[in-house]
Design a protein around this nucleic acid. Structure first.
Lengths: 344, 344
DNA sequence: GTGAAAGCGCTAACAA
DNA sequence: TTGTTAGCGCTTTCAC
């Protein structure tokens, strides 16, 4: 196990350089020597020393991914996408869980200047733009998922928020709903904003006037969804359906409905976003929008690796992936069969 | 950004060795030189090159963790435990998702001979004992979670399966249940086996004769739990409660009950294991056993780091952590109020 | 407490 | 196609 490349070279009767060439399948080696070397490597159970290789070649063939919480299916799926694409391109992946702590995220970003990774993918990062741009200016490679970025050297991947939100709300309208509420996420989230755009678009297309009392803000978590829902109810503007910017918040909506004896979908139709696994097990199962998390991760990894290797980034820097609506029982009820509003 | 230790040394008017000492807080440096060096490091925005450091020092200060599926809350929590403890001990963690593929797991194990990690934690590994023992014999450090291991150099962490299963089943018995079924996981799982032991123990303590028709095997997944439940029902031996070796399988039990119009908990009490987040959102919420996943990961990391540094492993190699029962509505119904059996 | 010098194990010029 | 050589950036003896 403590064999080095020279040991292999000696035993195989070649030079270290040749062994190195075999190891990195260079085509400047005869089939014959290659076989011989491979055989010796096998015999000696030789394994190249990662650090030595990295130090000499000045590349790690590793990409880092920083997510806010690894124990969140949304991020886990993105990671899987990154991992598999990277693997296909011979890259390793270092997964970093910032645990929702900005300091920890910063620490992980340090892997870049330490040259422990060749590039970094940030998912819904906390770091300020300036900090990130700084790294870019110093020549590091960074890609971002889940946040708008205004820098032409940073690739981003997102979903067609406006389009699928339009579809989701149109679906509700077609069921006979006219008073449809929207629960947003963080006020500064691009996703949340674009989903609102889609909501507005659908309403406008169907000539439904805008009702400001039917919008509220959550925080992308259960608690915030619950609070927003309670506020909406207490505001007194009647509504028969609610489009929620993500599934976590829809859990809060469900909770509020349970407390207030509002039946889903008879009294209130609910549509979320993410297709979180949990949605299938709710009563009733939640209609939601599938987010192609895996594909997003994979696309990001692919683009980033391309950029690193071309060293030049031309064409779009913003990649958009399509998502689609999944209709379940929470919106499976046609209002035109004549049911009355509950809140008034 | 491309500064090296010599550059810092020159600018600070000291030798590279001194800079290195400051970097690794050796106490062989005067406060004064230390301050000076630190200041220059700051000014030059110097970052040590990870690979060079590793190559020279022959340690990576990194631990690898291989899990079957990162998008599984159970494993994600363990990882978090590992990560935080490792961090406290100045170790980095490389998370490896084997994606339930034995080949991929093997590949990740290769990080050990490549010296990309100093030690590896395997969670519910696929690898054969011999393969793992081989690595140990070659001097590598490995810890295992979620599988029995018969090697006195491999630390393992597990929960008190027998005890909490005894408690869970006793809880059911105290509600008046006499016919209690058990749905196991994989046939070769130690956890599953020990949970059965606990089940048997509780039954025996309360003088309830063993009914072989009340046991069946699942696969730790929803589908297997569903199939096992259907078989139990169709076998015709009546039962009023079921203890399920994990929550995923309990999802299958719920599905089977829905199909057969069996009410939970009135007709059937259900208790699972894991306290998977999903359990809280089921109807009715599932009684389950909290597994201290985070603590398991943290303990494993701690022990492994200790072992690496003492280089000698004395004392126990098996660490057991307590878990506790969480009672929710799925078992919140006292049979002694006189309800009749449903299957007969 | 500090410096000089050697070398960790590999790859990439360059030469043959 | 293969070998020789230098050196990646750091730590660590060993002197002083």
């Amino acid at each position: 196990m403590d064999n080095k490349i020279v040991d292999v070279a000696r035993r195989a009767g070649v030079s270290p350089a040749t062994v190195s060439r075999v190891l990195n399948d260079s085509n400047l080696v005869t089939e014959k020597t290659k076989r011989k070397v491979l055989q010796v490597i096998e015999e000696m159970d030789y394994h190249p020393h990662a650090a030595a290789k990295q130090l000499r070649s000045q590349r790690t063939m590793t990409i880092g991914v920083i997510v806010p919480d690894i124990n969140n299916s949304y991020f886990a799926e993105i990671i899987k996408g990154v991992e598999n694409m990277a693997h296909a391109r011979k890259y390793k992946v270092i997964i970093c869980d910032s645990d929702n702590k900005p300091e920890k995220e910063k620490e992980y970003l340090g892997l870049l200047p330490n040259r422990a990774v060749d590039a970094m993918i940030l998912v819904a990062p906390y770091a300020a733009d300036e900090l990130i741009f700084d790294y870019i200016d110093k020549g590091h490679f960074i890609g971002i998922i889940g946040r708008p970025v205004n820098h032409d050297k940073i690739p981003t991947v997102k979903t067609n928020n406006v389009k699928f939100s339009d579809q989701a709300v149109t679906h509700l309208i077609e069921l006979g709903h006219r008073s449809i509420a929207y629960i947003a996420g963080y006020a500064d989230s691009l996703d949340s904003y674009e989903r609102m755009e889609g909501y507005m678009k659908a309403m406008k297309e169907h000539h439904i006037p805008f009702a400001p009392g039917l919008m509220d803000n959550g925080d992308f978590h259960e608690q915030g969804g619950y609070a927003a829902m309670i506020r909406l109810i207490e505001r007194g503007v009647p509504f028969t359906a609610v489009y929620v910017a993500n599934d976590e918040m829809a859990l809060g909506v469900y909770k509020a409905c349970r407390e207030r004896n509002i039946r889903i979908p008879e009294d209130l139709a609910v549509v979320g976003v993410d297709n979180n696994r949990i949605t299938k097990y709710l009563s009733p199962p939640l209609s939601t929008v599938e987010q192609p998390k895996y594909a997003m991760g994979a696309l990001m990894a692919e683009k980033l690796i391309d950029i690193m290797n071309d060293n030049e980034f031309q064409g779009t820097r913003e990649f958009v992936i399509d998502s689609k609506l999944i209709i379940r029982e929470s919106s499976d009820y046609d209002r035109r069969n004549g049911n009355s509003l509950r809140f008034s």
